[in-house]
Design a protein around this nucleic acid. Structure first.
Length: 120
DNA sequence: GGTCTGACCGGCG
DNA sequence: ACGCCGGCCAGAC
């Protein structure tokens, strides 16, 4: 089974939540972006997209997580401020072909990569 | 062990 | 159309 997906299999406050986020983010194709809510929904915690962002915070300190591919539902680079430089996120996205203007992803709807939809 | 915050989201006024 | 508010989960003090 290559396509390994975990439908909210977390039991009680385990680190699986973080691992799930890491994987989903790592699966995001270049030139694509996703939203915290999309990941949260995929993990089962659709209502708690905040946890995804929280996981990102830890992720950025853990490994090379492509947190720059994760934006909010509006396509805004809300987490850019958490990067080493406020322009690192935008730069990384543009580097992958994603145009960002004023911290906003262009054609965000088309660039949106929904794991619960793509990975299904 | 209780409390607060946090890179969000969606609804309501 | 814009602004504000509550909710929800998990980690840190």
């Amino acid at each position: 089974m290559q396509t390994k997906k975990k439908p909210a299999v977390r039991k009680t406050s385990n680190r699986n939540f973080f691992e799930d986020v890491f994987e989903v983010v790592a699966l995001i194709p270049k030139g694509r972006v996703t939203s915290y809510g999309a990941i949260a929904k995929y993990l089962g915690t659709k209502m708690s997209a905040r946890m995804v962002g929280w996981a990102m915070n830890a992720a950025h300190s853990q490994k090379n997580i492509a947190a720059h591919r994760v934006v909010n539902s509006k396509g805004l680079l809300t987490g850019k401020h958490h990067f080493k430089t406020p322009t690192a996120m935008q730069r990384a996205l543009e580097k992958e072909g994603v145009k960002v203007v004023k911290d906003q992803v262009i054609d965000f709807t088309k660039r949106l990569w929904d794991p619960s939809k793509e990975l299904m």
